[in-house]
Design a protein around this nucleic acid. Sequence first.
DNA 1: ACCTAGAATGGATTCATTCCATAAAACACT
DNA 2: AGTGTTTTATGGAATGAATCCATTCTAGGT
Lengths: 144, 144
Amino acid sequence: MTDTTHAHRIDEPSALLRAAGLRVTAPRVAVLAALREHRHADADTLIATTRARLGSVSTQAVYDVLKALVDAGLVRRIEPAGSPARYEPHTHDNHHHLVCRTCGRIEDVDCAAGRRPCLDVVDDFGFTIDEAEVVYWGQCPDCA
Amino acid sequence: MTDTTHAHRIDEPSALLRAAGLRVTAPRVAVLAALREHRHADADTLIATTRARLGSVSTQAVYDVLKALVDAGLVRRIEPAGSPARYEPHTHDNHHHLVCRTCGRIEDVDCAAGRRPCLDVVDDFGFTIDEAEVVYWGQCPDCA
DNA sequence: ACCTAGAATGGATTCATTCCATAAAACACT
DNA sequence: AGTGTTTTATGGAATGAATCCATTCTAGGT
Ligand SMILES: [Mn+2]
Ligand SMILES: [Mn+2]
Ligand SMILES: [Zn+2]
Ligand SMILES: [Zn+2]
């Protein structure tokens, strides 16, 4: 049995925050924890979860935290059409998403073409492309 | 010189509407015309253009028209993250989009992998996938 | 323990879009 | 052409998600 009470695990919310040069605050730690519990959660879910954990947090605080985390590269924000923004811990693996048109369920999909795929297109209009984002639309088994 | 005054060209707005089983109304014809003038226009642009052409239309009318056209398959609606919805005549060619992170400029990109690409993923979680939507993010030459 | 830049609060505000009840117009049928 | 039924347009209010702002609070450096 390993004692982790006083451990400073690099993947702990507070360590992540410090490593990113962000101040460690209760809302930030709680939001990071909430993000682990709920895959691809929207702000509402994160607000509710954070509030449950802390007793109270302002809605604005959670939005601010999310913005700080996204800006710091700790969190990825995705905005599937027709849905409020979703958030997930940033894994930097450039994975894609499978979205159910009916219930909005979202699943991760590994990038078939390698790490950062499809970055070259036939005619790029002179654009400097840095990311190819793929959304697979369909029906999940429950909705089919 | 070809006289087209009394022609019933299949690609004329009114013909398109009738073919789709939709009533031909001034706002619908005007919105279809506006869609030809502005690639990937948002609702605001279409409202302004339609209003200029007709003298006046309600905002709601344009939204209703757009919904009817999208439902009928005549128009495609895309929702790039961070931008209001954009609309384009539906070409059914499953092309993708290049989006400038700075100015929001959008360009069409042919699908490199064929008509309906990437529809197979490693693990599809039992989903029935009907579309793979790709957004290439980057900077346009003007913004770079 | 103290200071100060940065973060949280509560409240108002924006933006894109949708909802609703009423008035107007399109098309089918005399 | 006139009538009737259904669909569409109008004006105005309402919504959901997110942002702005002024004030109060707090984390972390000295
Ligand atoms: Mn994901
Ligand atoms: Mn396009
Ligand atoms: Zn589903
Ligand atoms: Zn640009």
